[in-house]
Design a protein around this nucleic acid. Structure first.
Length: 798
DNA sequence: TTAGGGTTAG
């Protein structure tokens, strides 16, 4: 559309929109126009001025119409841009001034493409461009992030001969920098005949935003004059790069600081997880009577959220109200986030309900707040109510499920996320993988690993650790190793996952080997490392080596052993039959021994048949934790193994009186992507008949192999044959039978049990692995058992 | 004659 047709088209619109018949005789002229416009209070008054201008013909005066356009686009908030454009289009021959004003208005409203269109219109209609036009065009290209367009503008600048105008050059430098073409920006900067402070700041900003510390430092050091904006940018850059010391040094050296300087350093602390320092500096800032605004308050609130200091957060909130900045959307987000992070969900709820036009961040904060205080359902309801969700919303909800042990929901929500085409990030995948681990969903876990590889996602230290942990816990040692070697940033946790994983899988020597390799590579072991190392010794029965590591932990690495480490040692000694030493170690503990430690000793008593000590420890334990099912069961089993059925009944009676419910043994197995669960004696599985047949076949084959049921495991006073039947319907055996039917060789049959595998099932599994020539992997509450050719990786030491 | 401007930092 040419300008002429455009004008013709629009002049009819504008004529009908203004009051063509003013009540008063039109009196307007150039000398009073400015006063009228300044006094103009409403759209109606404005249309009266406009109609008077049309009727008097004043509109044809370019100066008058340029004032009209300036007021309508910039000074009168009740006139919208489309109306201004109608006036503009109505003008017979707008000059360069008027074009520039319109372009500026479009750029301010973030519609740069219209500014570019106007420029084309200018060229087509031979409207003279000037040195004010090009900075606007450079800015428009910068907003559109189009170097292509920016280069064209640059060409026009050269042709039109404005290349020695410092404004023009500065906006072009900025355009190149914003669009990421730093070499073009630098070339222009180096070749520009005119440079001022803004030129230096613009090129510096380019390097700062590109995180190019070298070049930024070079420019900063060469600047003819240190200016506050440049120093502020450098603080920001150092902060982003984690170089807090440099940022601090620069801040201290600055002869003059402004609000942004303080705020930059506070945010630097906040970004580098130095939350306390951020708060201290903020207090300092207030003491120095520096003005505070909403940006710095947002940083400070985030620090409060991370430190969960709701008291400080509340006073910062009060300050925000006092200085009248609480209406800012970012501030509202920060407040809601702070309160919900601190567990003050009711306060967060109030702000959330009262706020309007709150953005995604607030919704996400509320979801995580609800999850933090355990209201999974409320979180889900809010999540479902969201019209727009981002990856954070999905990840928050997904990890919420995982944190509340709702692993099936974790996976199904992840599937839904995929369905919506949302790309998961590392945080999402960590939760999903951990859910796979808990559900023994190896196929799904492998699928996610493949997804990571296919999509080229970076395996950072946390994600790597989660994957290693999954493969180890699912008995896939080789895959775990492969992930470990493929992880670039190996943190102490990556090593830990490997050390613990090897130990768990019965490869204690590998575990200890890794430990020395870890030390060689310069990674400092932590408490968790020693849980793995001592665990490895425990699984192998390496009493001396265990002692050595335990002592080195204290003497060499200056780590304080916690109850877990003591528990390991007690278990190690106890299993080796050194019951006396184990009991002494418990008594020497600096902290009061936890139930797990006593439990380890109780287990050892049972194993070594120390009835006297077992009873003593057992009674202590049931007193210590009267609601714990396992200890009652263990105590009653000790009695049962001695055939003391009266005592068994007494313990069982105690359990009934105390309302202790024995957690039923449950085995899980994944087949074709579906998780199947079996309880002892379970007959609910749809393929129960086939399973029954397989159980019969198993029984026959096992008898031939010489298997004898270990009826001592059945702690009920029932007859022998009945005991054998009960034994043969243990959940592990049901799962193995099901595995034999559904999982084709050579794939191993992988089973997870919530409790420890019982003696008889352990023996039976060994026999089955030989009789059926199948590999069986059972992960129980404690560790792994890889059954192959009639023996187990734990070498019967568990 | 009168009128209009650019850039950077938390």
């Amino acid at each position: 559309m040419t300008l002429a047709t455009k004008l013709a088209h629009l002049s009819s619109t504008i004529k009908s929109s203004v009051n063509a018949k003013p009540i008063f005789k039109p009196t307007i002229n150039l000398s009073i126009l400015e006063t009228h416009l300044q006094k103009c209070q409403s759209f109606k008054q404005f249309t009266q001025i406009l109609s008077q201008m049309i009727l008097t013909g004043l509109i044809a005066d370019t100066f008058a119409s340029s004032r009209l356009i300036k007021f309508s686009t910039d000074l009168l908030p009740f006139i919208d841009m489309s109306y201004s454009f109608k006036i503009f289009a109505f003008l017979e021959s707008p000059n360069g001034f008027i074009f520039n004003t319109m372009m500026r208005a479009y750029i301010q409203r973030n519609v740069p493409q219209k500014a570019i269109c106007l420029y084309k219109l200018m060229l087509n209609n031979n409207v003279g461009v000037d040195n004010y036009t090009y900075p606007l065009l450079a800015q428009a290209s910068a907003l559109r992030l189009s170097v292509f367009e920016g280069k064209l503008i640059h060409d026009h600048v050269l042709k039109a001969g404005f290349d020695s105008d410092v404004y023009v050059n500065n906006t072009l430098i900025n355009m190149y920098a914003v669009c990421g073409d730093l070499s073009a920006a630098r070339k222009l900067f180096d070749e520009s005949p005119v440079l001022d402070l803004v030129s230096w700041n613009s090129i510096l900003a380019g390097y700062v935003n590109a995180d190019n510390v070298e070049e930024a430092k070079f420019i900063y050091n060469k600047m003819p004059e240190r200016n506050i904006i440049a120093s502020n940018s450098m603080i920001v850059l150092f902060g982003r790069k984690g170089n807090v010391a440099e940022a601090c040094r620069l801040f201290k050296e600055m002869p003059k600081k402004d609000l942004v300087s303080w705020s930059a350093l506070i945010s630097c602390y906040e970004q580098n997880e130095m939350y306390e320092e951020a708060l201290v500096l903020f207090m300092n800032m207030i003491d120095h009577r520096v003005m505070v605004d909403e940006v710095v308050v947002v940083s400070v609130l985030s620090a409060c959220a991370n430190l969960t200091v709701v008291k400080t957060g509340t006073s910062v909130h009060a300050l925000a109200v006092k200085i009248g900045i609480e209406c800012y959307i970012n501030l509202q987000n920060a407040l809601i986030h702070m309160y919900s992070s601190c567990g003050e969900i009711t306060t967060a709820e109030k702000l959330f309900d009262a706020g309007h036009n709150l953005d995604l961040i607030s919704w996400n904060s509320m979801i995580s707040g609800y999850l933090k205080c355990g209201s999974v359902e409320k979180a889900r309801a809010l999540f479902d109510a969201m019209i727009e969700k981002d990856v954070v919303s999905w990840s928050t909800m997904i990890s919420g499920y995982a944190q509340h042990d709702q692993f099936s929901e974790t996976l199904s929500l992840f599937m839904e996320m995929q369905h919506h085409g949302i790309r998961p990030d590392e945080a999402t995948l960590v939760s999903v993988i951990s859910a796979c681990t808990h559900l023994v969903a190896l196929d799904q876990g492998k699928w996610i690993h493949a997804y990571i590889r296919k999509n080229g996602l970076k395996i950072n230290s946390i994600l790597g650790t989660t994957l290693i942990d999954m493969y180890m816990k699912l008995g896939c040692v080789d895959n775990a190793l492969e992930v470990f070697h493929g992880t670039e940033e190996k943190g102490v946790s990556s090593w830990n996952a490997l050390i613990i994983g090897f130990a768990m899988n019965g490869l204690a020597d590998k575990s200890l080997e890794m430990f020395s390799e870890m030390k060689k590579s310069g990674v400092t072991p932590n408490e968790i490392t020693f849980v793995g190392v001592l665990g490895a010794c425990r699984h192998m029965g390496l009493v001396d080596e265990g002692h050595r590591h335990f002592n080195s932990m204290i003497q060499e690495h200056r780590l304080e052993p916690n109850s877990k480490h003591y528990g390991c040692m007690v278990d190690l000694l106890g299993r080796a039959g050194m019951l006396k030493e184990a009991e002494e170690l418990i008594e020497s503990m600096p902290m009061s021994p936890d139930v797990a430690t006593w439990g380890a000793l109780l287990g050892a008593c049972k194993k070594h048949g120390d009835h006297e000590m077992g009873e003593r420890v057992g009674r202590k334990l049931v007193e210590l934790q009267p609601d714990h099912d396992g200890f009652h069961v263990l105590l009653s089993n000790i009695h049962a193994s001695k055939g003391r059925w009266d005592d068994v009944l007494e313990v069982r009676g105690m359990m009934v009186r105390r309302g202790v419910v024995k957690i039923p043994g449950c085995s899980m197995i994944e087949a074709n992507g579906i998780i199947h669960e079996f309880l002892a004696g379970d007959r609910t599985h749809p393929q129960i008949n086939e399973i029954d047949n397989m159980l019969d076949e198993m029984a026959k084959k096992l008898k031939l192999e010489g298997y004898a049921p270990d009826t001592l495991e059945v702690a009920f006073d029932i007859d022998q044959e009945e005991k054998e039947t009960t034994l043969f319907r243990h959940s592990e055996k049901l799962a193995i039978a099901f595995g034999l039917i559904t999982i084709s060789p050579p794939n191993p049959i992988r089973i997870m049990k919530n409790l420890r595998i019982c003696n008889d099932c352990h023996t039976a599994a060994k026999f089955i692995s030989r009789a059926f020539d199948r590999e069986i992997v059972v992960r129980d509450r404690h560790r792994f058992h890889h059954f192959k050719h009639g023996s187990c990786s734990c070498m019967d030491f568990w």
